[in-house]
Amino acid sequence: MAKVETSSVVVQPKKKSSITLKANITGWLFASPWVIGLIVFFAIPLFSSIYFSFTTYSVLQAGEFVGLQNYKELFHDDLFWKSVYNTVYFAVFFVPLSIIFGVALAMMLNMKVKGLAVYRTIYFLPTLVPHVALAVLWMWLLNPGFGLINGTLDFFGIDGPNWLGSVKWSKPSLILMSLWGIGQAVIIYLAGLGDIPEEFYEAAEVDGANWLQRTRHITLPLLTPVIFFNLVMGTIGAFQQFTLPYTMTQGQGTPANSLTFYVMYLYDNGFKFFKMGYASAMAWILFVIIMGLTALIFLTSKRWVHYQGE
């Protein structure tokens, strides 16, 4: 009996291991298209760009290894610093404004009124408009001669500015356009508002708290996880601003390069001037900046992000 038991103990792991091996092979076979795609279209280009950033690679020619020369040239490139300034300007104003307007719109669209689904659809529709069509639409609205906005201002006796033709107003105009399409963030805020238990508001009403006090001490603190998510995603998106300014200026960044954003200048260097090594260096600088800002947001989140149950 002892021998039979011993042999069964030995045979069982072999069967188990063979089944596990077959399951692993099957799993890797099913995952192989995704793994191959990840390696070919992401990992290889990623590590190649690190090497190219230290070379004079130009797509047409292999180039030579020049070390940190591309990075040194960038720090002496006036247009590079101009693009950094434009991008930071946009991010500093757009991200906070998108959070403020997004939360305010979500709170309005969370009220129990008749036709609420229609209002939510209307505010989400601009998000579905392609960025190129959005740029063309706003170029017409902001036209200084016959645009709807300046026409409305003129009706009230106000002389409207040359929105997209003025260095002073070009970036504020772009921020205005971008705020028009914050429907996705509003949907996320609505989901966050829906997760706040009604018992908190009922208890606050019993204690005599008014709407402002309930908003300040219940809604906003419990909405901070959603605000945190949109802050991170909004910051990353703001530093990658490309389609709207590129479409409106036909890639020129006019007037006076006031709409030349970082990714636009990166694109021009890589695909217009074929300075792919230079563009790769710009891409890695942008990567470091975004990673640094994201890490900073995560570190500070412990002070102001509040989760239910904590």
Rank of each mutant, 00 (worst) to 15 (best):
F287A: 13
Y278Q: 06
L142M: 12
G145S: 13
N269S: 13
T249Y: 11
D207W: 04
F273H: 07
F146L: 14
F90A: 02
V186L: 07
E199T: 13
M233K: 05
N257R: 12
V118Y: 13
Y85C: 09
V226Q: 11
S8D: 15
T56V: 08
Y123N: 00
L164V: 01
K112M: 09
F298C: 04
K171Y: 01
A62I: 07
A279W: 04
G253A: 01
I188C: 07
F273V: 07
F273Y: 15
G165Q: 08
G27A: 01
Q61H: 12
S8C: 14
F229M: 11
P13H: 05
G309M: 03
W169D: 03
A133D: 08
D195Q: 09
H131S: 15
E73W: 07
Q308C: 08
V88W: 03
A283P: 00
L220M: 15
W163K: 08
S18G: 01
D154I: 01
G145M: 12
T87S: 15
E310S: 12
T235A: 11
T249F: 11
M177N: 03
M282F: 01
V129N: 02
D207N: 09
M248L: 14
V103Y: 11
T127H: 11
K16T: 10
V136S: 08
G102W: 07
P33D: 03
D159S: 15
N269Y: 07
Y89K: 14
K114C: 04
S301Q: 06
V232K: 06
T219Y: 07
G253Y: 01
T300C: 02
L174P: 04
T6F: 15
K22Q: 05
L220E: 10
G277E: 09
G253P: 00
Y85R: 14
A191T: 09
M108C: 14
F228L: 00
L148H: 05
S178Q: 12
F80M: 12
W163R: 04
V10C: 12
A209C: 12
A281M: 02
L105H: 05
S166L: 07
T224K: 05
V113D: 08
I188E: 08
G237F: 05
A203V: 09
P144G: 02
I25Q: 01
T300M: 13
A135W: 09
A31I: 09
N230G: 00
T300F: 10
G192D: 05
T87A: 10
S178T: 09
L109C: 10
E64A: 10
F54S: 12
I188K: 02
D77T: 03
A281D: 03
G183S: 04
T121R: 10
L179C: 10
F93E: 10
G192M: 00
Y267L: 04
L266C: 06
H217F: 13
V59N: 13
T87L: 06
F261W: 06
G181L: 07
E205C: 05
Y189M: 10
F261S: 05
F155A: 11
V11G: 03
W138P: 10
G192F: 02
A185M: 10
W81F: 15
Y123Q: 01
G151S: 11
K171P: 02
D268F: 14
W138D: 08
A91F: 05
T121H: 11
D78K: 15
Y189Q: 03
V92K: 03
I25R: 00
P172R: 02
